[in-house]
Amino acid sequence: MSARFVPVPTPETGTYWEKAAEGELWLPRCDSCGRAVFYPRSFCPHCHGDDLTWFRASGRGVVESFIINHNPAPGYEQDAPYVIALIMLEEGVRLTTNLLGVEQTPDAVRIGLPVEVVFEQRDGIALPQFRVITGDGASG
């Protein structure tokens, strides 16, 4: 059992977590307006269209904002201080994440850093996390 907080899927979000368990990041997209929707829900909040279709997202994005938490949550004691970041995905939706593959300091992390999705196994849930892409797009 991880001491870390474990999310509980709901009917709207089930596909997100099922695909994450297969190591893939999937998002719902509106059939009417074509916009990706996050968080997942039962219809489109942009145009109020009825039908959303899940698709596999690129898993790539950039750091949009971040803090460095000095007061660890349960299960994070060994990692403090650690980054909590907001990622803007190529698909135009924003995810929260920790930031892997980079020193957890204000100097090392910066807005605009390119990142890619990886998955953390946590009590039967695969949690999307992001790591910094180093070099010319090769994962580091």
């Binding site: 870390r4 907080f5 474990v6 999310p7 509980v8 899927p9 709901t10 979000t13 996050f38 968080y39 938490n69 007061n71 660890p72 949550a73 299960g75 994070y76 990692d79 650690y82 909590i84 995810l95 929260t96 994440t97 920790n98 946590r122 949690l127």
Partner: peptide, 15 residues
């Protein structure tokens, strides 16, 4: 943990 903040923010070490 089933709320939207619970699924998509809280798991990332929010204390």
């Amino acid at each position: 943990p089933a709320s939207m903040a619970g699924q998509f923010e809280q798991p990332y070490g929010m204390s």
